[in-house]
């Protein structure tokens, strides 16, 4: 896929190839979440373009092929929901507003992938933070996506949940899926990352080998030559201009 960005983001362009696992790194406020949310059309883009599987952002995008794991804060409402119900909602898409007949089995299987099938009927509010995160990942996995986009999936998550996620990610990679992960550091997932971009103040300051290979120097906060000229106020996030996923 390719991004070309502008205003919280400045000229961030990138293409994610099929089967590639991309880490989107950077400090708080660098525009990582903004980038993925704009790519998914959750935030409106002021300029630029996004293509997912060769289709411009809009109704015609094959949303059923895309799994999104938002930051955990967005989960929850005023009424308890069971883990299975939350995961089942991942089976709905633009062409299917009723769950398929095998929804229950598929939801439980996705929870099993994340190692929490035994909690399927429990209210999500009763689960730990790491378990809640695993439910959200299962919700994205249940549709067997070709592109998985995760926003800080392992931030503040216990070791067992991190391990469950790493295993699931390995299975996804082996199946040929493309993955984009927003994260602070590659950490326990380092061996699974093919490529990393680093954002700082909305600019792409690194694109290539994951920075763990180079130590901490590729991370913002260190002196680094920025390959892009900022075309706006520093720290004012702009939106991605161009994002493509190859089908």
């Amino acid at each position: 896929m390719s991004f070309g960005g502008n205003a919280v983001l400045h000229d961030v362009s990138l293409t994610l190839d099929r089967g590639e696992t991309l880490a989107i790194l950077g400090p708080n406020g660098s525009g990582k979440s903004t980038l993925v949310r704009a790519v998914l059309g959750v935030l409106p883009s002021s300029a630029g373009s996004v293509q997912l599987f060769g289709t411009p952002l809009g109704r015609k995008v094959p949303w059923a092929r895309i799994g999104y794991v938002p930051q955990r804060v967005s989960a929850g409402g005023g009424v308890s929901a069971s883990a299975r119900e939350v995961v089942t909602s991942g089976l709905l898409n633009s062409r299917r507003i009723f769950p398929p007949r095998d929804a229950r089995a598929r939801a439980v299987a996705a929870l099993d992938t994340m190692g929490i099938a035994d909690r399927a009927e429990d209210p999500v509010d009763n689960l730990s933070g790491g378990q809640q995160q695993r439910v959200l990942i299962a919700r994205a996995l249940v549709r067997e996506p070709d592109l998985l986009i995760l926003d800080e999936p392992v931030a503040g998550v216990d070791a067992a949940s991190q391990a469950a996620f790493a295993d699931a990610l390995r299975v996804m990679k082996d199946a040929g899926a493309s993955v984009a992960i927003v994260m602070h550091e590659t950490g326990s997932l380092a061996s699974l990352i093919d490529r990393a971009i680093v954002l700082d103040q909305g600019c792409k300051v690194h694109d290539g080998e994951p920075p763990f290979a180079h130590g901490a120097h590729a991370l913002p906060g260190h002196d680094h030559v920025h390959p892009h000229d900022a075309d706006g106020e520093p720290g004012v996030e702009s939106l991605p201009r161009d994002f493509r996923v190859k089908s």
Partner: peptide, 25 residues
């Protein structure tokens, strides 16, 4: 429409990225 209405009420952002007709629901 309970599963779809649940999805929209539970996590609007996720529902939108699923392509569910959020506004209509």
């Amino acid at each position: 429409l309970r599963p779809a209405l649940f999805s929209v009420s539970h996590d609007n952002e996720f529902a939108r990225t699923s392509g569910i007709p959020v506004h209509l629901l």
